[in-house]
Design a protein around this nucleic acid. Structure first.
Lengths: 103, 103
DNA sequence: ATTGCCGTTGACTATTTTTGTCAAATTTAT
DNA sequence: ATAAATTTGACAAAAATAGTCAACGGCAAT
């Protein structure tokens, strides 16, 4: 199962491409320090950065985005006893909205 | 199905208790304007406020918290095509973490 | 029409969180 | 050892959030 964080995944991709932080940071136009922190989960990623990295590594964007979003979701319910219930409710509500989209 | 927002739910509860914003705001120690905005979804609620309101209205805390959390979750994936997938992945990951809690 | 009560709105400030920049320190590889 | 790569922390800038306040509008009763 995909138990890795998106940061770990991104570092893995970078290493597979044999690219140093320095180069990737230059390519996607952010500071090396920030990229380093993002890979290690010390800084939050943004959707924009994820997109640029997917492009840089030529990797499946959707897979990365799902990982990215799921992590943001998990962040919202961290340490919450009712987290799982909230997730289920959110799912039902999203589905409901979709069915009745546009009213 | 619970299709209402937590703001709507809270307003409903307040009205059922025949309490004016003014009084509830005083009870939970926030400004009337803020409470008004929270009930209408113009301002985000905080967990703390939800707890105080549940207490004020003597209403099921967990139900309100789940509603509150699910809304925060939905906020994270709003307009995201991959939202539902991300929710499912988040669920699986949360379960995984739970099973291996404490490592 | 005035008073009183309730809720809404917007402008403003303060506070907190997030983001960006940089250089020094540490680690890793050659 | 030295050079490249990465990590770390301090600091400033910017953005998001939260709080305060007063004016405004609706409505009912008189």
């Amino acid at each position: 199962m995909s138990t890795e964080t998106i940061g770990e995944k991104l570092r893995q991709l970078r290493e597979q491409n044999n690219l140093p932080l320095r180069k990737v940071a230059a390519l996607i136009d952010i500071d090396v320090a920030i990229l380093s922190k993002m890979e290690r989960g010390e800084r939050k990623l943004t959707k924009e950065i994820v997109l640029r990295l997917a492009d840089t590594y030529k990797y499946n964007v959707d897979e990365l985005l799902v990982l990215f979003l799921s992590e943001r979701i998990m962040y919202e319910i961290q340490d919450e006893a009712l987290g799982e219930k909230a997730l289920k409710v959110a799912e039902r509500r999203v589905k409901y909205l979709k069915e009745n989209k546009g009213k």
